[in-house]
Design a protein around this nucleic acid. Structure first.
Length: 188
DNA sequence: GCCAACGTTGGC
DNA sequence: GCCAACGTTGGC
């Protein structure tokens, strides 16, 4: 990692992945706000600590069964220690975390918008201007990812389009060279 | 359920 | 400091 550009940029855009904490849960929170805990990856931690600022925009992505960008949120508090790392019973407990050296960080986000139409991963893959997105890289596992304002806006626009008229997903020629494995229907 | 990609750990 | 083994993530 190179030198950090300490907030020379006023408003960045990000994508947050979540598997079980859904956007419906965020919507149900008091003030539609939550702290984004449980990130246990140093690269993501560094972004939470150094790069994510109040006012930054967030795309909310469901991994797991739905695999779609489902809405947007706003950062309302910049990086601070993730106290759940020190809670013995927490899922993401880390015995190395201490009060002096909390190691892990989190930010607060507030729900902005639940998309009328979630934008599925498969559809994102068909959009040429999004081809550079970290999310679309094979094997991408970062749960906090930077996105460009252009990518952000493109996805919001897609969510405002009717899904049917412009062919939903993978029907169009995919530009991927990957050999396609056979996909099985998920059970449960 | 399978497996590729990735991060972390630990032996040396 | 290297790297193989291992565990996890997450798309399919």
């Amino acid at each position: 990692m190179t030198a950090k550009t300490k907030s020379s940029i006023t408003s960045n855009c990000w994508l947050f992945k979540s598997e079980c904490y859904l956007i419906s849960h965020l919507k149900a929170e008091p003030r539609r706000t939550t702290y984004w805990d449980g990130v246990r990856n140093y690269q993501a931690r560094n972004m939470l600590r150094d790069d994510i600022h109040v006012g930054d925009r967030v795309l909310f992505y469901h991994s797991g069964d739905e695999r779609a960008v489902v809405g947007t949120a706003i950062v309302t508090r910049a990086g601070y220690p993730d106290h759940t790392a020190r809670e013995r019973d927490a899922q993401h407990f880390d015995p190395k975390a201490t009060a002096e050296n909390p190691i892990w960080m989190m930010v607060d986000i507030r729900l902005e918008k639940v998309f009328a139409r979630p934008v599925p991963l498969a559809e994102l893959r068909t959009v040429r201007s999004l081809s550079g997105m970290e999310l679309l890289r094979q094997g991408s596992r970062l749960s906090i990812q930077p996105v460009t304002p252009e990518q952000f806006d493109t996805i919001v626009e897609l969510s405002e389009q009717a899904g049917g008229e412009d062919r939903p997903a993978a029907r169009r020629n995919e530009t991927k060279p990957r050999p396609k494995g056979k996909s099985k229907a998920r059970s449960t």
